[in-house]
Design a protein around this nucleic acid. Structure first.
Length: 166
DNA sequence: GCCAACGTTGGC
DNA sequence: GCCAACGTTGGC
């Protein structure tokens, strides 16, 4: 069953490019990967309750020089248990989680478009229409956060893309 | 590398 | 359930 465009949600997802960049996603098999390692309850709840296949994703480079939106992606799967929580060798192993009642979730994210221009955090701050964007808010540390449909369109335009294509 | 912000932990 | 200590995030 298809979802109406009006129900589509948009997200900004942060990754440190030294760890995993948008180009890494673009070059991955089927241009997609499991977004594992989330260990924040609010983000877990976004994945569980509010994300849907087809939602738009602004792929944001944090701890980059400069930080900014590097590409466009989509949510490509429903939420499922994050396998790294069960792996003692994984960086984000969680010994308190069990397979019967997994604490942490992941979703698949798939790259769908390269930006014509990188949209730096200064570019975002300079756009009056983006003044309420959560990623620009002081002290905002969530690695995944919602973006409004309007902000989505403005950011894509700053990146040289037409939101109607995505 | 600094440090403000803020989520989590754990003693009480 | 309070709250101080601690750990992490992420821009600068």
């Amino acid at each position: 069953m298809s979802r109406r465009a009006a129900q589509r949600s948009y997200w900004l997802m942060k990754s440190e490019p030294e760890c995993f960049s948008f180009d890494d996603l673009w070059n991955a098999p089927r241009r997609r990967t499991g977004w594992d390692g989330v260990r924040n309850y609010q983000v877990r709840n976004f994945m569980r309750d509010a994300m849907h296949v087809g939602d738009g994703v602004l792929f944001y480079h944090s701890s980059a020089e400069p930080p900014g939106v590097a590409g466009v992606a989509r949510i490509a799967s429903a939420a499922r248990p994050d396998p790294t929580q069960f792996d003692p060798a994984a960086e984000h192993f969680d010994p308190s989680s069990s397979r019967d009642a997994p604490t942490w979730l992941e979703v698949d994210v798939q790259a769908v478009g390269k930006l014509a221009r990188y949209v730096s955090i200064d570019d975002l701050r300079s756009a009056p229409e983006l003044s309420e964007m959560l990623v620009l808010r002081r002290g905002q540390r969530l690695s995944v956060m919602p973006v409004t449909a309007h902000e989505w369109g403005v950011v894509l335009a700053l990146g040289g893309l037409d939101a109607r294509d995505f």
